[in-house]
Design a protein around this nucleic acid. Structure first.
Lengths: 369, 369
DNA sequence: GTGAAAGCGCTAACAG
DNA sequence: CTGTTAGCGCTTTCAC
């Protein structure tokens, strides 16, 4: 074990109280004593034991990330930002995954509670169907913040307006002259994440007075994709799901021969699957088919062709979530009403719609409450 | 705060000792008392406080991941597996990042020590230039395991034989008739990770009696890639580095006009950059240029064309690292000699070399010590 | 200014 | 079989 405060105090010939005051920078200590202690302290390489601190203070300076069973670049970018911001503010991060099921959530939250985390950031879809365990956590007086929109649960929230983003993507395609625009999404369709995408897509069409044709919408389900198999869809592990779904949905849309000239994909990863399928079906992107994605995926500028997409400020989202959470933890944010912060997104135009502009065409949307 | 053992005991009208014995399943308790306690316990939703347990026992049932400043899919797959296996064995995971610098390592290790972690998994390049902080950690009697090969530091280690993998990739290309094979790697060239790649590449050439031509090797440095700029290399953030380096290196190799017909890339992400560059330079893959990658990147089967690559068993690596680490922690692994476990890799043949085989051609290599 | 001591929640050793 | 108690390392109150 590490050397303890007590032992250091003994070796230094001072009381634990005095040593402690030096360590926390209290002014109530003789200047000469302080100086001597600070000088000699170096030798010991003393590391304060946070576990004991936590037990004493009831606060662990630790935040929990309950999150993402699904492995995606966007999540990774958020987790990294969460760690960095937490570290900058003196907090540690402990992770717990949940598949979003009742049991998964319960297990994750119990684990985090047992570590006395001061608050948690929910990254997954958990809060879509919030179990009582989240409420129980809040009843302990500890804050929860979600990085996705939350509808039937009260907590702080950092999101972006997915529907608006998909409306913008679709409107962009309409502006390029497309009328038969496909939508490749994947199950579960009841998920808000999927519904927001479909909603934005439909809104854009409605505003442009283009009829919504169900033939142009494919929602790939895990079962269908698995059953389909095929060259690229070898497995539908979590990590593959987006790609495989995009591949399968696009293949299906092309085979329907419904005159589709453009395709809105649920994510960049989905779009990558779409590009692959289009290629396999002998379609050239963007000549025969315009494709847009959605995310801040780093690959998206190295696909063939590079993807037009919406940039999600993933690191910003992680950072803001930590900021707000810690504000709550430290009582700096006392207002009763929960924070709903919507971050801006940006349309990044690259080559996948055949309309490469030299300067980025940007559109910002920001709202806070 | 959570309800404590003490409070539960009081409300149940038993002593803390008895309650504790029930909780840990000790036989030294009256059957009827036990039954009553177990029944009534449900009501309280009691969650044992690990913080207090840790303080008492000197063990926190927590493992630290000191890891990867560089955001890559492969790392994410490992972290996920680490979490899952740790959870399965009753351990929690706390993360700390380090950029691999002396200060970064020190900060990360101190943070983990302050949380009394029972051991750490090093994922980054930290142990390439091991700072004393790692040794100090070991001196506390706590084990370290690395997921990358470690050369000048003694600890357990789960790796795969990168040099052998690159030799195999190169040999595969030679077998297809290629003689002018390029190598796209990136700085720092002194890094073992890079050296192993170059070594494997050279070994294959030597065995085939093909001269090694420095013209065919490009090691992209951050400075060069940044200076170059260009359409795709907008920034060289960590997340982009592999792609950008691959793009830049390939562009450079093509412009050298040295008769290159095949290209070995440092990673799948590098290969994606290479595919993009080849496309931009008007080369068709695999007709004009065969490309191979290295990793277990999920995208690699959705690139155009799908990549021939080496599959790293990332989840396996994470899982084994946890297994070995916990064995050490729990004293089940007492042998003095450090474990060097080499996991098997597999050549996955897809379309990027023009030699698609219907059945996977596999090559396994495994060694343990 | 400094030291002594109580107690956070838990476990384990010991006394009854 | 059950209850009591000391102490893990720290912070904080209170007494000197």
């Amino acid at each position: 074990m590490n050397i303890s405060q007590k032992e250091v105090a003994e070796r230094l010939g001072v009381s634990r109280g005095t040593l402690h005051r030096v360590l926390v920078g209290s002014p109530l200590v003789n200047a000469r004593t302080r100086e001597r202690i600070e000088r000699e302290l170096e030798e010991f390489n003393y590391i304060p034991n946070r576990v004991a601190q936590s037990l004493k203070s009831g606060r662990s300076m630790t935040i929990g990330v309950l999150g993402p069973a699904r492995i995606r670049t966007a999540n990774m970018l958020k987790v990294n930002a969460i760690y960095e911001e937490a570290a900058a503010q003196g907090y540690s991060v402990i992770i717990a995954y949940s598949d979003g099921s009742e049991e998964g959530d319960e297990h994750g939250i119990r684990q985090l509670l047992s570590h006395m985390v001061d608050g948690i950031i929910v990254m997954g879809r958990g809060l879509c169907h919030p179990s009582d365990h989240f409420k129980a956590f809040q009843r302990h007086g500890k804050p929860i913040i979600s990085i996705y929109p939350v509808y039937n649960f009260k907590c702080d929230c950092v999101t972006l307006d997915t529907a608006a983003a998909f409306e913008e993507l679709t409107t962009y395609l309409i502006g390029l002259g497309h009328q038969r625009i496909g939508l490749a999404i994947f199950s579960p369709r009841e998920s808000r994440f999927v519904q927001m995408r479909e909603k934005g897509y439909c809104q854009a069409l409605e505003k442009a007075k283009i009829p919504i044709d169900p033939e142009l919408i494919v929602c790939a389900s895990t079962e269908e994709v698995s059953a389909k198999g095929g060259d690229y869809v070898e497995s539908l592990e979590d990590a593959d799901a987006d790609y495989a779904a995009g591949y399968w949905a696009t293949e299906e849309l092309i085979r329907r021969k419904c005159g589709m000239t453009a395709l809105v994909c649920a994510s960049d990863d989905t779009a990558i699957g779409a590009l692959c399928a289009a290629h396999a079906e002998g379609l050239s992107v963007p000549k025969d088919l315009a494709v847009v994605g959605y995310d801040d995926s780093t690959v998206s500028r190295y696909t063939i062709p590079p993807l037009t997409t919406i940039q999600q400020p993933n690191p910003e989202m992680g950072k803001r979530a930590v900021d707000i959470l810690i504000s709550r933890i430290e009582g700096r944010l006392t207002k009763k009403r929960h924070v709903k912060e919507e971050l801006p997104f940006e349309l990044i135009v690259r080559d996948s719609c055949g309309a490469r502009l030299k300067s980025k065409q940007t559109a910002r949307k920001s709202r806070s409450a």
